[in-house]
Design a protein around this nucleic acid. Structure first.
Lengths: 258, 258
DNA sequence: AACAATAGTTAGACCTACTAACAAGCATCG
DNA sequence: CGATGCTTGTTAGTAGGTCTAACTATTGTT
């Protein structure tokens, strides 16, 4: 009899969770298949129908999980962003990254490393930004993902700034419009960096990310076959800007161990 | 009778040209409609059927002109490349651009100016590089367009190098792999620049183009609303690298006059 | 056991690219 | 001038895509 009561109370909860669990599993399986299709056959192969076929289920069934292809694509995009951010955070949390400067280098290398080991996914992140239609241009969600993504980098620059400072350019020498924008951005990040330091941060980010953009979009392949040393030169330059010591990357063996 | 003879000989030529002219007109009309669709409704709207509808002609008729959508897209891409390169060349040919340094600045500004006045087209040029499917990744034609495009910039750096020289980094301080790649690239451009100078050129190009990449792909909009002064700061940096005097851009009024 | 929510099905509307077969027009040749 | 052949258009149809509607079966709750 007590057993019966337990069932009557507990079973519904368990079963409700079971449904939720199954649903969750289906959602992740869909994304996982979509990702496999992207990697194996390119972004054009990521279609609702192809995923359904691969799942052994018929087309419209997927609409129970993602109500449109756009939604699936956005979910995939945000997966990749999360994974990339996690990889960068993991690099920063590595015990060998015991100073803000080392963390910054580790994060930067983790960024490129993820980009190179997941070229399809990284290119996908760009494709999500390039406006395919006028309306979907400024989706606020993607903008947030993008900011969260560069936030990891920003955090380290803030810490470097707070603990050690670095040389600043003078706002007076700049174009007034640039100064205004830097003030606005400094406010946007809650004054964590003064406008001049924000400029240095943005310069660093732009250099690094711009280089990566060109690499992943095949815009520089006519000159460089391997961008790793170029990237390292860029990191040296960043270290000069941020007044932190440059340290060459650890051996691949060490990196694999983490 | 002579008139008849003239007709008999001349008419076929004229008529053959007429056909070719009509065909040419149809080809350009197709591309023009496709471009209008791109600008107005985004890249996804550039479909064979949509263009045909817009032309008042039924679908498969277009296949007489472009045998596949890919071909039309490639033609459009190469149009944009040509137009952009022409804009850069025109800036270099302007009478006010009377030194290699001024030409370089003019070209750089023309590049960004075109990118900003034709955002859809410029983004399209990137999309053409991002691999949608594994196979079409390394189309040699696109690579050539890309190189021809940065060639305009390279030409000016070569001229600056030949006439005035600029300070060079030492190859010995670089990663050996980087030195090897620079040697290879120096040979690829027929030794117009020694490896060290090629590095400076590539650094300049990367900075400039990387910034533009980020702008057009909305990767930096979270911080800057107007990239013009940032771009100008970047140009100042390039001038320092190339040891040429920086000159601020002429007024918009002057620019409109050219 | 009855009811409701969930997850699947098929049919179909409406796109897309692209091919095949056919009809009309235009240029050329006898 | 008339016949021939190339060029350009047409329609019909295949195959695939997104997505909706209507229906069924399973599952969870009452």
């Amino acid at each position: 009899m007590p057993c019966r009561v337990v069932q009557a109370i507990a079973a519904p909860v368990v079963l409700r969770q079971r449904r939720a669990r199954l649903r969750e599993a289906a959602l992740t399986e869909i994304r996982s298949i979509a990702r496999r299709l992207l990697v194996k056959e390119g972004s054009a192969a990521v279609t609702i129908n192809a995923v359904a076929r691969e799942m052994g289920v018929s087309g419209p069934a997927l609409y129970r999980y993602y109500s449109s292809q756009r939604e699936l694509i956005d979910a995939l995009t945000s997966d990749f962003f999360r994974e990339l951010i996690a990889a960068m955070r993991a690099a920063a949390d590595h015990p060998a990254a015991d100073t803000p400067g080392r963390r910054l280098l580790a994060i930067s290398r983790a960024l490129r490393s993820w980009a190179n080991s997941h070229p399809a996914e990284f290119a996908w992140l760009f494709a999500s930004r390039v406006p395919t239609s006028r309306i979907a241009q400024c989706s606020p969600d993607e903008n947030n993902s993008g900011r969260a993504f560069c936030q990891v980098f920003l955090d380290q620059v803030v810490e470097i700034w707070e603990t050690q400072r670095f040389p600043l350019p003078s706002l007076e020498d700049m174009d007034p419009s640039l100064a205004v924008q830097l003030h606005a951005y400094s406010e946007k990040i809650d004054g964590l960096l003064p406008p001049e330091a924000a400029y240095i941060f943005l310069t660093c980010w732009t250099r690094l990310y711009g280089l990566l953009c060109m690499e992943v979009l095949n815009q520089i392949s006519f000159a460089y076959s391997d961008l790793e040393p170029v990237y390292e030169e860029c990191l040296q330059e960043l270290c000069r800007l941020l007044d932190i010591p440059y340290e060459p990357p650890r051996q691949a063996v060490d990196l694999a161990a983490e």
